[in-house]
C-alpha cells in the first residue's frame, strides 16, 4: 500500500503537518487554493503577544516542507472513498489515491459588512483587523487618515453574536485587538485609543502582561460594552454608540478610525470539500471531531483527519500543535492498518 497523505490547505497548519509527515517517511501531497503558501499568516504583519513578525514564523514553516510535493492555485474537484483509499481529483488534473486525508483548511474571517450597523464598506473610516495588518505591512490605506486623533477597536465582530450566525468566541480577537491598539498608539502617539469589549479573554501566556502594558504604557482605554451602531458625521468621522456597562450609561464618541475585529468561521473552501463526503459539522459550523478531548484530530470517517481552525477558532501555537498531533494520529492510523 502507498504511503500517500493528502493535506488540504497550505497555511501554517498544513505546512507544519506536511513537514512532520514528510520527516516520518510519508509521501505528502499538499494543495493550496491560493497562489502562495501561508494562508492568513502570509497576510499578517505581527503576532501577539510579543509582536514577532509574521514572516519570521512563516519562513521556517515554508523552509521545513522541503521535499514535500505541493500544488498552488489548486482545489479539490472531487473526493470519494474507493475501498480503503480516498480518490481525490484536483483542479490541476492530477488524481491522488490517499489512505489519509488531512483537513487543514482553516478559517475565513467573518465578513464584517454583514454587521450592517457597523458600516464596513460604507463609511470611509471603518476597517477590519485584516485591513489594519495590511496597513502595518504596507503603510498604505486611504481609510487611515494622516494623524488620527481618536481610534476605536470593536471586539467580537461576528463572534458571540447569534444574529450574525456565530455564537462562539473567536478566541484570538481580544489579544489581536490589544496588540493592534498598542501598535497604533506607537504609530500615532497623540491618538486616544479605545477598545470596546464585552469580556477580555486574555487566556494565553503573556497575554495578561500585554493587556497591562496596553493600559499602563500605551494608555489604551478599555470600555466594557459592545458597539451598537456606527454612523458618519459631516466631517466623515465615525460616531460610535455603545454602553459603558461599568457605569451603566449610554456613551458616544467620535472617531477618526474604527477597526472591526472580525472573528473566525469555518472556511467556505473547507466546507465545500467536507460536503463532498458528508463530514459532519457542529452547530457552530466547524467540523465535528471524533471526540472532544481524546481524539481531536480525527473525523468519525476513517482516514479523515483535522488540524487547526477548521475545528474551531485557534491561536497560531494551538494550530501548530494540532498539526503535529495530527501527524502522529495519521502515523498511528497507518501502523494500525498495516
Amino acid at each position: 500500500m502507498n504511503k500517500n497523505v493528502m493535506v488540504i490547505g497550505g497555511g501554517p497548519c498544513g505546512l507544519e503537518a506536511s513537514a512532520q509527515l514528510h520527516k516520518m517517511g510519508y509521501n505528502v501531497i499538499l494543495i493550496e487554493k491560493e497562489k502562495q503558501l501561508g494562508g492568513h499568516l502570509a497576510k499578517w504583519d505581527r503576532l501577539f503577544p510579543e509582536g514577532i513578525e509574521a514572516k519570521e514564523v512563516l519562513q521556517p514553516l515554508v523552509d521545513n516542507i522541503n521535499g514535500v510535493k505541493y500544488f498552488l492555485d489548486t482545489e479539490v474537484v472531487s473526493i470519494n472513498l474507493l475501498d480503503k483509499e480516498y480518490n481525490v481529483i484536483l483542479s490541476n488534473g492530477i488524481t491522488v489515491l490517499s489512505k489519509a486525508v488531512l483537513m487543514t483548511s482553516g478559517f475565513d474571517l467573518f465578513p464584517a459588512e454583514k454587521k450592517e450597523e457597523y458600516g464596513y464598506g460604507i463609511y470611509d473610516r471603518v476597517i477590519t483587523n485584516a485591513d489594519l495588518e495590511k496597513f502595518f505591512a504596507t503603510g498604505k490605506d486611504p481609510r487611515v487618515v494622516e494623524n488620527p486623533k481618536r481610534i476605536g477597536f470593536v471586539h467580537c465582530v461576528g463572534s458571540r453574536d447569534e444574529k450574525a450566525g456565530n455564537r462562539y468566541c473567536s478566541k484570538v480577537c481580544c489579544a489581536t485587538a490589544v496588540k493592534q491598539a498598542c501598535e497604533m498608539k506607537a504609530l500615532f502617539p497623540d491618538a486616544e485609543i479605545f477598545c470596546f469589549y464585552m469580556d477580555l479573554r486574555m487566556f494565553g501566556r503573556g497575554y495578561e502582561d500585554m493587556y497591562l502594558k496596553a493600559q499602563k504604557d500605551y494608555g489604551i482605554r478599555f470600555i466594557r460594552g459592545r458597539v451598537s451602531e456606527v454612523s458618519e458625521t459631516l466631517e466623515k468621522q465615525v460616531l460610535v454608540k455603545a454602553e459603558d456597562t461599568l457605569s451603566g450609561k449610554p456613551l458616544k464618541v467620535t472617531l477618526d478610525l474604527l477597526v472591526l475585529m472580525a472573528g473566525m468561521q469555518n472556511a467556505k473552501s473547507g466546507i465545500r470539500i467536507g460536503e463532498m463526503i458528508s463530514m459532519k459539522r457542529s452547530d457552530d459550523g466547524f467540523f465535528t471531531t471524533k471526540g472532544s478531548i481524546l481524539s481531536l484530530q480525527e473525523c468519525d470517517k476513517a482516514g479523515i483527519f483535522y488540524a487547526g481552525a477548521c475545528t474551531g477558532p485557534k491561536t497560531l501555537p494551538d494550530t501548530l500543535n494540532e498539526a503535529r498531533a495530527a501527524a502522529v494520529s495519521i502515523h498511528n492510523y497507518f501502523n494500525k492498518e498495516n
Binding site: 459603558d244 449610554p250 458616544k252 464618541v253
Partner: peptide, 11 residues
C-alpha cells in the same frame, strides 16, 4: 440626557 460624551473628555 445621561449619555457619556467622550468627545468632551478632558485629556
Amino acid at each position: 440626557s445621561s449619555r457619556i460624551d467622550l468627545d468632551l473628555f478632558d485629556r
